[in-house]
């Protein structure tokens, strides 16, 4: 079984579901996400600057994981905007989970505006060490 291929296929499918696909949405941004794999889990690492732990929402519904994060608007009372290179809009992105993931054990943490979602693998697909007995 080729697990890296699973992660890649998942990333590709996730983009088919990304907001903005087919329609241009102004209200949310799609966070940049990298997908990593360890023996035990898949990791989704999403850049969501301005999102604190209490503003992250991770919802798993059937095989779709939706990651949302809201940010405070970048406005300053009594100031006018001279230039703008980014829009401080909230983030949203969905992913189709591969069957190998144990969706009941999903955890998430956020540090410095980077959200890490840990998707543990089902026990059945974890590598097992087989004891060899001397005959």
């Amino acid at each position: 079984m080729s697990l890296p291929a699973v992660a890649k296929a998942d990333d590709r499918r996730s983009d088919a579901r990304a907001p903005g696909d087919g329609q241009l949405r102004q209200s949310t941004r799609v966070p940049a996400v990298s997908v990593h794999e360890t023996d035990q889990a898949l990791l989704l690492i999403a850049d969501m600057p301005g999102v604190s732990a209490d503003r992250v929402e991770v919802v798993v519904h059937q095989d779709v994981l939706t990651l949302k994060g809201s940010v405070h608007p970048d406005t300053h009372e009594g100031f006018r905007q001279l230039s703008g290179e980014y829009r401080a809009a909230s983030f949203e992105r969905s992913f189709t989970l591969p069957a190998e993931v144990d969706s009941t054990g999903v955890t998430a943490n956020v540090k410095l505006g980077v959200v890490t979602v840990t998707l543990p693998k089902q026990k059945a697909v974890l590598p097992r060490r087989i004891a060899v007995q001397a005959v």
Partner: peptide, 24 residues
């Protein structure tokens, strides 16, 4: 687009510059 992306706000005597630097 340069990194980090910056927004600049001004009033008469003060400037506020904000930038997104995730993971920094």
């Amino acid at each position: 687009q340069a990194t980090p992306a910056l927004n600049i706000w001004a009033n008469e005597n003060t400037l506020v510059v904000t930038g997104e630097v995730p993971g920094v």
